[in-house]
Amino acid sequence: MIQIQHLIKAYNKEIVLNIPELTIRQGEIFGLVGNNGAGKTTLFNLILDLITASKGEVISKGIRVRESEDWKDFTGAFIDETFLIGYLTAEEYFGFIAGLRRLTKAETTAFLEKYTDFFNGEILGKKKFIRDFSKGNQKKVGIVAALMGKPEIVVLDEPFANLDPSSQYKLRKLIKDFAAENGTTFLISDHTLDNIADVSTRLIILEKGHIVRDVPKTETTLQEIEAFFKPVVEADVF
C-alpha cells in the first residue's frame, strides 16, 4: 500500500528521519511509537506531502506523493488541531469535508450517526464553534472527519492524547471495527503503549529517526515495547 524508499529528512544537515526501506501492506494497522523527536510526525508529514524529503520518496498505492495529488482521493488524515477550522460548528466542518469527499447530505448524516456513542452527545447539535470545544472534543471531530468517505489509508497522529479514559477505549474499538469493515490501512502513532499495542497489527519503534524494532503484534508485544522504553534501573549495591 505504502512504499518508502531511501527516505531521509534533514534540517541543517541534522538527519531527523532516515528510513532505507519500509513497506506498509493493505489492511495493516501500523502503530508507531517513539520518544519525542523520534521522527513520528515527520514521517506522517512526508507521507502526506506536507513537507519535502531531503532524499528518497513515498509511494502511496503506486502514486509518488511528491509528483501527483491523486493520493488525496483515498487518504484521510488528522495530525493536530490545525487540521480543524475553528470558526465552524462541528456540523459545518463535517459538511465541508463531506463536500470535498463527494458525500451527499444523506450519506453524511448516516455516517455521523455511527459515531453518536463516540461523540457522547457533546459534539453535534451544539451551537458552538470548534475553537470553543475542549481539546478532547476537538480531537474527536478531527478523527471522525478523517474517516469520512471511507478512505483506504487513514493517518492519525497521537489520536489517543487528550481523550478521556472511556473515549480512549471507544476509540480502540472504533479503529479496529472500521479497519475490519473496510479493510482500511491505518497509520497511528501514540505515546500510550497499551493503547497502541491494543489496536495495532504491526508495531514499529522509531528512535532518533531510525527504525529500531519492526514486529507483528503478538501476546508479548506490549511487554517488549514497555521493556524497551523503561529506563534501566541500577543494580542494588547492598
Binding site: L48, D49, L50, E69, T75, I79, T82, F83, G86, L100
Partner: peptide
Amino acid sequence: SNYFSMLMCQRL
C-alpha cells in the same frame, strides 16, 4: 493559514 495543511491534504 490556521488550517492550511488540512486543506492541502484534501481532494481540493
